[in-house]
Design a protein around this nucleic acid. Structure first.
Lengths: 236, 236
DNA sequence: GCTATATTGATTGTATACAATCTCCGCAAC
DNA sequence: GTTGCGGAGATTGTATACAATCAATATAGC
């Protein structure tokens, strides 16, 4: 999970932020819902002071929207937002893959291979609950993509990717993946690894871009299906 | 200047953050210096509470570094940091130029042309103080680059560029520009405008990348000259 | 019945008090 | 001299109190 922020991770109640972030990402506070400080403070077992700091930081990272004197709202996303986000992911992660091809270490490749294998094997594995399966997929995927970002050697790039990746998680992208689509995703992982082993940055970038844009299309299709089934639930 | 953050700008004491940011960028608190909350509070005429929030936000945007229980330090940058930053600027602003080529409006082009002209004319103009000249260059340049970012149509891209651009300003890059280099920079501006008018995204991106990487090289040369003249003044 | 205005309750924004933590310095032991 | 310990001062981190602001309802005027 290690996230390498400018704010030191071990911070005693930087944990408040981490927990808030997690609650937001996992949908405990659904997009569009109001975030009353007093309530968050009770949920997290602290006073409003650290909660406010966490909210300011979450706003700076785009997870919530702060309205002056009117409080925070868990950020909600339109289809256009998703397009923007995936466009940037393709750009940033593609670049990371390009840079990584020159610098990645054997250990990092091994870590990515382990994650890729875990994702492949999970196709034939049964999970207690669907939630557990989604959580597992998110985790292994984060290892795969996070390792590439780290291998790029550009610390700021890592931070940016972490920021932009948090959002699709709110949509629980993997929830929508079918077995076919997951096989394709796994194939992309192997292709990326192949290009990285060859040290072919252009190829690694191209495959990574396609991998991400393919994921975008799967998500968009499912979202369109969703929104046509149930009416819009945006609120300003 | 308009910055389009997730946090609404007009906020009453979001201004505290804006002022802190400015003090940092303009070097009033030099890189590496400790930022004691009480002192900032007095400088800004408020209590520690809003100062802390501003610091948290500044940390999230990479302007300062927060050490748990040990306070904030105005972030200092190594040569490697500058390399990272310019690499990302080339990526992000190049992409913005590519996108902008398809969507930019006549008004936006006109605004950019006005900024480009202002920069050209400033070469033969005399300023009261060197400070004023630097401020003018920074401002017009921000208009030129900010308009392209806005014209990309990707709101998140705008935010990211704003974040990454703040840093070189801390180095007062323009201080180091000589007349020759400024002429080249102006030429790039015209080339970018030309490509945008043609709607040629690939060309706009290529020129923008070169424009930024050229700026990087100028800055790096001056930094190297600096650091060889005076001994290192990094502190942890 | 409709619009405009005041009042109330809820919530945010700021200041301040206090607790927790760190740094620095002095002193002792070796 | 060097190392280790401990206390004082400074600074950060949190909680709480209060002021400022906003949303919603009630009330009055038309």
């Amino acid at each position: 999970m290690s996230e390498l922020y400018t704010i030191d991770e071990a911070s005693p109640a930087d944990q408040v932020y981490q927990r808030l972030r997690r609650l937001l990402i996992e949908g405990y506070y659904p997009p569009g819902s109001r975030l009353v400080e007093e309530r968050l403070a009770q949920d997290l077992g602290v006073s409003r002071t650290p909660v406010r700091q966490a909210l300011v930081r979450a706003a700076a990272e785009g997870l919530v929207h702060l309205f002056p004197n009117r409080g925070a709202v868990a950020r909600s996303f339109t289809i256009e937002d998703l397009m923007e986000i995936y466009d940037l992911r393709a750009l940033l992660e593609g670049h990371a893959a390009y840079l990584a091809a020159q610098r990645i270490t054997a250990e990092q490749i091994a870590r990515m291979e382990a994650a890729a294998t875990a994702l492949e094997e999970s196709l034939t594995r049964t999970f207690e609950r669907r939630e557990d399966e989604v959580h597992f997929l998110v985790e292994q995927n984060a290892i795969f993509h996070g390792t590439i970002a780290a291998a790029s050697g550009n610390q700021r790039l890592v931070t940016m990717i972490n920021q932009i990746v948090a959002v699709p998680l709110q949509f629980r992208s993997f929830y929508w993946y079918r077995a076919d689509e997951r096989r394709i995703s796994n194939f992309f992982h192997r292709s990326i690894l192949h290009a990285l082993r060859l040290g072919d940055g252009d190829r690694a970038r191209a495959v990574m871009r396609e991998h991400i844009l393919y994921g975008r299309d799967v998500l968009l299709q499912s979202q369109r299906a969703e929104s046509s089934a149930s009416p819009a639930r945006r609120e300003e």
